[in-house]
Design a protein around this nucleic acid. Structure first.
Lengths: 232, 232
DNA sequence: TTTGAATGTGTCATTTGGACACAATATTAT
DNA sequence: ATAATATTGTGTCCAAATGACACATTCAAA
């Protein structure tokens, strides 16, 4: 049913950038391709868009295929469309990035796809323009995490302030004063003391917090940096 | 030369959201379609991606076609790919948004395309999902303008602080204290006094400033809201 | 010359942010 | 037991930024 006869149709792919946090570093989930082209090389997880499939649905499908997870946080990053980005045939790639709790994913699927978590500081060479995609995704993560409380997507439901602190240090690859960070995070009112403590600690056990869902939804879309705070 | 034989190719379009500022309001440039489908309805300016054309090049082509302008600020917004967004045939649309000096564009081309500048507060019904695209573009504009000095793209090279003030009030649709705004803008060091004054004013003539190119490039990529300022 | 609107600059109280000290908690070594 | 050590929670201090607001200056038109 082609009704725009004079226009060319192009292959449309989806690539997924999947971030996790192991408690020390931000990690990226990449696969070792066992298919052509570029078999044996590292790449992002991806696939082609099905004819009857929304882009977001395609992204969910691909994320599920690799991680076995269904309700993960993801958003569209950008679309890459340089003419020669795929040497086989011109392909437009719509790129998504996802944040998952690294301990939740299905290790079986990951093994099946020859996937590995790699440190952002030590990313192997990736095929095509995947390197660039990751760069932009990191920048986007830094952006959003500075303005919206999305970092929590990388942590378990219950988490401690020191964990959160390490997470933000990892995202921005910089040292953040522990005490000022704590004050700032607590002042948002996003954190709720669960009454429990992190029993895993070898020293003083930190308080386990969870998110205040209401405030979370509220604050999610406010950013206000250059603009003044709405005074009511 | 199709070498991914089992995948379906899709139509890929580009749509452009073009913002301008008339001194009072942010305006959007929309066209009245004189072609099918939806002839006679309002829509964003767009076109299909050519086979041998990068996405950005396509966007430039479309922007030039409508405005006659070549070096305008634009960036990729997002890609829209709902299965039924175009009733004729499934079409993926990569959306760009551009900021132009409203007084620079080629009125001839604009007339030829039956295009009009409409106020953001009074946008006519647009075809397909173009309404949604515009919503997201406005949000994106607010985002970026809060964090990066992109507002200047909407003004002439030489501008006054009151103009800038009105621009930001228009972008955020809110009142901003004139004096605090002035202080904040001046403290960035981005503005250079040209020594000239706005002769058009009927009352006190405001100082005309231009951008400090160096600081502009410097500051363009810093955003720092949640994160502390780098202390050097 | 006066008037009125717009523009440039300044003041002040409050809040926020960065640097840093110290007390509390829990494990391990003595 | 007790001390030593590492980690966590909370507080203080000062400088800088922010929001609310006053006042003086400039220009065209009355």
């Amino acid at each position: 049913m082609k009704q725009y006869p004079h226009s060319t149709r192009l292959l449309v792919a989806i690539d997924c950038i999947i971030f996790g946090f192991d408690g020390e570093e931000i990690k990226l989930l990449v696969i070792k391709r066992n298919f052509e082209p570029e078999r044996g090389k590292w790449s992002l997880m991806g696939g082609f868009v099905n004819t009857d499939e929304d882009l977001e649905v395609g992204a969910e499908r691909i994320l599920f295929e690799l991680t076995g997870l269904n309700n993960v946080y993801f958003e569209q990053l950008q679309t890459f469309g340089k003419v020669n980005r795929d040497p086989v045939e011109r392909t437009i790639s719509v790129v998504f990035f996802a944040l998952i709790n690294i301990h939740n994913h299905d290790e079986e699927s990951v093994r099946a796809h020859h996937a590995h978590w790699v440190s952002l500081k030590n990313i192997p060479n990736l095929i095509f323009d995947h390197q660039k995609m990751v760069e932009i995704a990191i920048e986007c993560l830094r952006y959003k995490a500075a303005l919206h409380p999305i970092g929590f997507e990388l942590l378990p439901e219950k988490f401690t302030i020191p964990q959160l602190h390490k997470l933000y240090e990892a995202i921005y690859d910089m040292q953040l004063d522990r005490r000022n960070f704590s004050r700032k995070i607590l002042s948002t009112g996003l954190l709720v003391d669960t009454g429990e403590k992190n029993e895993q600690s070898a020293t003083k056990k930190a308080i386990l917090y969870c998110l205040n869902k209401e405030k979370y939804e509220d604050k999610f879309h406010s950013f206000w940096y250059f603009m003044p705070e709405p005074s009511a």
